[in-house]
């Protein structure tokens, strides 16, 4: 989403920068461009207080940087879906309970609805969009298809990411381990049997496949 199309938000953003800058260096008037203001504010005030208006952020997602701006209250999930058009992670309960928004952050599965986007800066974020390699679906995704591990499909992206994160840490799990390892994800259609079987199948296929 381009800032040019959002004059209202752009205004708030520059307000934040100016205030931060003025607090930092004690200047009471002046005309400077937004970019300079941001840099100065960063250098001068420590620790920096950002917001409540929009602030520019950079997120490292699936190995590449994404720049956008968000208010500090924006969750990682909303930034992914509404700002970056990465809509695989789903917003269902939005309270850190159902798992549909699961992404992998620095190698650990997390609920993206319960992480602030501004706080996810500097961390490696993996979403379902980054799982396929060279157009080929990931072993976990393939196993979900093969085992009919979805019905309405809304929980599926979260389950696939939870399963990927689980298998990265437990490459050779038992059925019981799979069950507890996916304990943070819910499926209202009740596809758990297929999901667990898919994870066991994916574990078999991924063994030895280093980058799977």
């Amino acid at each position: 989403m381009s800032l040019k199309q959002e004059p209202e938000k752009r205004k708030r953003k520059s307000n934040f920068s100016r205030r931060g800058f003025l607090q930092g260096v004690g200047i009471t008037s002046g005309v400077l461009t937004t970019g300079v203001l941001e840099k100065e504010a960063e250098a001068q005030s420590s620790p920096k207080v950002a917001g409540p208006g929009e602030v520019p952020i950079t997120l490292q997602i699936n190995g590449r940087p994404y720049k956008t701006s968000v208010e500090p209250r924006t969750t990682l999930l909303d930034a992914l879906r509404h700002r970056l058009d990465l809509t695989a992670a789903k917003r269902v309960c939005d309270r850190g309970t159902c798992g549909a928004c699961t992404v992998i952050v620095d190698g650990k599965v997390m609920y993206s609805c319960t992480v602030l986007a501004i706080d996810a800066q500097g961390r490696q974020i993996q979403t379902l969009e980054g799982l396929a390699q060279n157009g080929k679906p990931h072993a976990v995704s393939r196993a979900f298809v093969a085992n009919d591990a979805q019905q309405c499909g809304y929980c599926t992206p979260g389950f696939v990411m939870a399963a990927k994160g689980f298998l990265d840490k437990n490459p050779n799990p038992t059925y019981e381990e799979v069950k507890s390892g996916l304990g943070g994800n819910l499926c209202r259609c009740g596809t758990y049997m297929g999901v667990r079987k898919a994870v066991l199948d994916a574990a078999k296929e991924m063994k030895g496949a280093k980058n799977a």
């Binding site: 620790p47 917001g51 208010e71």
Partner: peptide
């Protein structure tokens, strides 16, 4: 969620001053 200003201090001293 109500909008808020956000700080991410790196020392306890800084964090306490922000409360």
């Amino acid at each position: 969620m109500q909008a808020f200003e956000y700080a991410s201090p790196s020392t306890l001293h800084e964090a306490l001053a922000l409360l």
